[in-house]
Design a protein around this nucleic acid. Sequence first.
DNA 1: AATATTAATCGTAATATTGCAATATATTAA
DNA 2: TTAATATATTGCAATATTACGATTAATATT
Lengths: 110, 110
Amino acid sequence: MGLAKTEMFTDEQNKIALFAKVFGHPARVAILQQLFKINTCYCGDLVSEIGLAQPTISQHLKELKNLGLVKGNVEGTSVCYCIDAENWTAMKAVMAAFLDQDITTTNSCC
Amino acid sequence: MGLAKTEMFTDEQNKIALFAKVFGHPARVAILQQLFKINTCYCGDLVSEIGLAQPTISQHLKELKNLGLVKGNVEGTSVCYCIDAENWTAMKAVMAAFLDQDITTTNSCC
DNA sequence: AATATTAATCGTAATATTGCAATATATTAA
DNA sequence: TTAATATATTGCAATATTACGATTAATATT
């Protein structure tokens, strides 16, 4: 079906999956790394830096914006993008709660 | 195309994306949380716990196994699954390097 | 006003993902 | 050996994702 049965899962599980999904493409990872590196970045800079076509980068940026991880600021004909620090921190807390679970090796089957 | 152009990105970026992708479905999040919670778990238990069909759970487990995050141990007709602690820790280091980047609010455009 | 620049949107082709019924495989029990 | 049980695999339909050319929208420059 290609359609996740989100109603079977908790809000937290769906939230983790949504954040993870947006990181599940190397172009979006690269965009975020670049934004962290140079702090503030025009859309066109990302296009030349990453090497995908402009509509493709624009589409990836849209997904990052939809989740609130990235903000865009219109400056004339350009749009300047940066990380949304507050939402990034909130996302980190959600992901950390999932990733930092304790592993009890006792009573393990394998 | 539906096909990520992995050759344009660094190994690290592709690795982050691969790990994130496997967490990008709530069923796999739920499977992992359950494995952390009860430490060791038969495939059938996950099917009844999560509520998706047996082939669906089996398929999700396969993806987790392919990335090395989960191990399975055959016990008679059953298969007992658990987290691969070593690989989980290694994965956490990769993801933390990405998620814990510093945010410099100075010189930010938005 | 006409043109240039930058980014977003639309449309579409190629491919990937999700979910499950049906079936196959492997082990144990009778 | 046969039947029962548990899991994996196959095949397929529905939907999602990725990428980009063409176009549009908005602002700047001349």
